[in-house]
Design a binder for these strands. Structure first.
Lengths: 350, 350
DNA sequence: CGGATCTACTGTACCGGTACAGAGATGGTG
DNA sequence: CACCATCTCTGTACCGGTACAGTAGATCCG
């Protein structure tokens, strides 16, 4: 059975193909009665409407935008902070009817999503800016918005004040008299475990900014904390590293964590060692996601408004799609320190 | 500046358009040296490779599959069980290079994703089978796989043994001497709060199956528990409902919950009322997601292998895409009761 | 040395729509 | 009644690729 196309219907009804097209796409271009007849014939023939691909080619728009995510999509679906961000985008985009296609940086095989998937534009979320996927998207001259990345000239970007937020946590702990610190960072590429040479770290934007923020405050005080570092999802690895670090005699009294989830690993290590938070150990997180208030004691952390970030990103992309030749705007969302129960004065000498 | 197409490059190099196409898509069809010249010219002209839309039209495949989700995408990104399922799909699909487009059932405006987005096939996950979106996908004669839904003739499906799992929980509690039960269900459509007439419930597949499973065991014992019911994300509403229900003198001693997350609300209500789990109250969940083992006491629940479900769904769709006209297979994954600490013997009369 | 096979490239006909200019018919107007 | 505007509908030329059947020349082979 040959496929049903506009022509099939046109022949059946005895009109031109163009008129059938109009019946579906521009109802005001033909009389209601004829349109009715055409639609009925289409119904009868089992026509599902103009083929999206053909339409996309002819019109030049697909009705789809891409979201380029770091490595695995697992992160997008599993991390609650990323999830909230993506959910906000989806909700902001819903009224426009645009759909979302998830793109991975790593094109396995000869299919490279960033190069081979049809889309009208893309959001690039916390990716390695030198990745081939990003290059492909740029090459295609698609409207792009960069989120949680170093802004790139000519493209709109959305960021949060990571560095400022990180400074606030460090300052808060310094004010409480802490002198022995540690950093706990999540990051996929580069060395893992206890890292002594910070220059060896190959980090994403957020990691870098937050670490810089901590250092802004601590370095002037002559403090250069050791760093533990594991992949995002490896809370257990953070736990093990932290346990090792906290078992030393001159252990840190304050651990600055890259995220709330990272802090979970440190909490566990503290529990393993019988250290009380915040009496023996102060811990800070970042993001103020759901876990921050679920942890006991509640986590002192830096709040960023992920929903707002998502909405801003979606809005920026939408206006870029409309050819809004307004100069690429750079959005910077504020962060605020949320002091809860996981931080306190440095423990006095025993 | 006119757009760079195959023709642009063909003119530049002095070959036919077809040869340029071959240079990109069928390298074995031309001499390496000419191919090199063509690729160089393309590079120089800033050509990003064959236009995905045009290619899709000509080849008849898009390299994208859709996933149709209930209402909001928020659920997909926020619920950990759904997230694990989707992540497994993504990982199973990654080697094939297929990308994932997220589709909402509710087409707002005149753009209906299920009708207007180009794709090679779709996964339908826990949707209302009568929704227009499902009808559109069928109309388009796309390869489809139904997951967590009533199987539809002619289409492959993947399900878990919801009903059997639910039976196991009810039986487990019955064996422990419980006589006063309650159900706690999550569901978006239909009545909320305390529901007395179970026939009034407009439920999804999973809700229905699980409730039927409970009833399979309890009804023969003459037990017809009251039901509380709130939307998926409204843990707070479950908490409020449960508190009300558990405050009555002849309160239930066992609450059967639709999911682990629903159980969280019941845990909170118990804490609010000073009821101890499992001494005063037994609670069961469903899914055995991350929260089940995070809750204190650890939750007795029904384990389903969401990862396996995701892999099975992806595999089924992939084989459907390859025109595998093998009769539509119906996959049923097992569930197992995981007894932890949230269930115990019925409290004796005080 | 004639014919078969291969390699490297080309020409044409699609894929299934939409844009846009125009052609009749219709109707209102001065 | 001539004239112009409006309403419907049509024809053609794309959109940017790919499939497939050639063709011309080089190579092989007995």
């Amino acid at each position: 059975m040959p496929r049903v196309t506009l022509q099939t219907i046109a022949d059946r009804v005895g009109v031109s193909r163009m008129t059938v097209s109009n019946a579906f796409s521009r109802p005001d271009q033909l009389s209601p009665t004829l349109r009715r007849r055409i639609l009925d014939a289409a119904q009868e023939l089992g026509y599902a409407g103009p083929d999206p691909t053909a339409r996309a080619l002819a019109k030049g728009t697909t009705g789809t935008i891409g979201i380029l995510l770091t490595d695995s999509l697992r992160y997008a679906f599993t991390d609650l902070v990323a999830g909230d961000f993506l959910a906000a985008i989806a909700e902001e985009l819903a009224p426009t009817g645009l759909s979302i296609t998830l793109l991975t940086s790593t094109g396995s095989g000869d299919l490279i999503p960033a190069r081979d998937v049809a889309m009208d534009g893309a959001l690039i979320y916390s990716c390695d800016p030198t990745s081939p996927a990003v290059a492909w998207l740029q090459r295609r001259r698609l409207p792009l918005v960069f989120v949680d990345q170093d802004p790139i000239a000519g493209y709109p970007s959305v960021n949060v004040a990571d560095r400022e937020g990180a400074r606030a946590t460090a300052q808060h702990l310094l004010d409480q008299g802490h002198e022995r610190f540690a950093y706990a960072i999540a990051g996929s590429h580069g060395p893992h475990g206890l890292v002594t040479d910070p220059s060896a770290l190959l980090e994403g934007y957020a990691s870098t900014q937050r670490r810089l923020g901590w250092a802004d405050v601590l370095a002037p005080a002559g403090i250069h904390p050791p760093t533990i570092r594991e992949p995002f999802e490896r809370v257990d690895a953070i736990r093990a590293d932290a346990r090792e670090l906290l078992a030393t005699p001159d252990r840190p009294t304050a651990v600055l964590c890259f995220s709330d989830v990272t802090a979970v690993g440190v909490y566990q290590a503290a529990e393993d060692l019988g250290l009380r938070i915040p009496d023996d150990l102060s811990v800070t997180g970042f993001d103020d996601g759901p876990v921050a208030s679920q942890l006991r004691p509640c986590l002192t952390t830096v709040r960023q408004d992920v929903e707002a970030k998502g909405r801003a990103a979606a809005t920026a992309l939408r206006s870029a799609l409309q050819g809004g030749q307004t100069t690429a705007t750079r959005t910077l969302l504020p962060t605020t320190l949320v002091i809860r129960e996981s931080t306190g004065p440095a423990p006095g000498p025993v």
